[in-house]
């Protein structure tokens, strides 16, 4: 099958990039990233600079791939990362516009690669448990109701790919931050630092220059791990509680 690609090419951070057209002959069985590999082989054979793009596990769990295809992060399929998107999803002769995530907090490093260090800094601000938890303890030491454990696990399935930021018309990082906060704040080990964590992570998120959440729900629509807006409601709730406690001078 033949695919017309329009790929964002940008030499380095700060440069003004542009869309460049390529034609690629590929197979319906190849994944989207393999199709880009084929393109790069063609470019290298011609002595041109290959297209840079992020990828790692290629099995949908690492969160490295970060391509917006025809305006939708991770492409047209729901609950899918780009590496799990296959060319059979498209038709012969389709034109696909491939762009990097767009956000002030995610500067483009080169071509389709963005710097998602802002997410790391949000995690560093409070997305952890301070005390050493040691090796796995006996399962019944901390009784956790199954629905709570499931809820925390769903939130923890966030792979930090940044599609939520990329899809949000406001470039808000609320789904990511909320997933991390909800995961930890729901479990006994994380509850000890609940208020401190919530305040610190939101402050960091704001300082990184992400936009504000206006409840569009686009993030939920593109999230490859199907993280729900529920977690954002919990973050809003936990933050209100933490902020009130801080205002009243309570120990947090």
């Amino acid at each position: 099958m033949n695919i017309h690609l329009k790929v964002w090419r940008q030499k380095q951070k700060g440069d003004s990039g542009k869309l460049v057209s390529y034609d690629v002959e590929t197979d319906e069985g190849s994944s989207f990233l393999e199709m880009l590999d084929i393109l790069n082989e063609q470019l290298v054979a011609k002595g041109e600079d290959s297209v840079s793009f992020d990828h790692d596990c290629r099995e949908g769990i690492c969160g490295m791939c970060s391509l917006s295809i025809n305006g939708i992060p991770h492409g047209p399929d729901g609950a899918t990362t780009v590496c799990q998107l296959h060319m059979r999803r498209f038709k012969d002769g389709d034109t696909l516009v491939v762009e990097p995530w767009r956000s002030r907090a995610f500067p483009v490093v080169k071509d389709l690669v963005v710097d998602r260090g802002a997410f790391d800094r949000i995690i560093q601000a409070g997305g952890f448990i301070t005390s050493r938890t040691g090796s796995a303890v006996e399962a019944n030491v901390h009784p956790i109701p199954k629905p709570i454990a499931d809820y925390a696990m769903d939130a923890a399935s966030c792979i930090g790919c940044g599609a939520c930021v990329a899809a949000c018309p406001n470039s808000s990082a609320m789904l990511f931050t909320a997933a991390k906060v909800s995961h930890m704040n729901s479990l006994p080990q994380g509850k000890a630092e609940k208020d401190k964590r919530t305040l610190a992570m939101v402050d960091r998120m704001d300082a990184e220059g992400f936009g504000n959440c206006t409840n569009y729900g686009e993030c939920q629509g593109v999230c490859p791990k199907e993280i729900k807006l529920d977690v954002i409601a919990q973050l809003n709730r936990d933050y209100a509680v933490a902020k009130t406690k801080k205002f009243l001078g309570a120990a947090i």
Binding site: W8, G71, V97, R102, S103, S171, G209, G211, T214
Partner: peptide, 12 residues
Amino acid sequence: ENAAARPQSYQV
């Protein structure tokens, strides 16, 4: 603030 959070918009 939201406009500033995405200085470069998507082509599509």
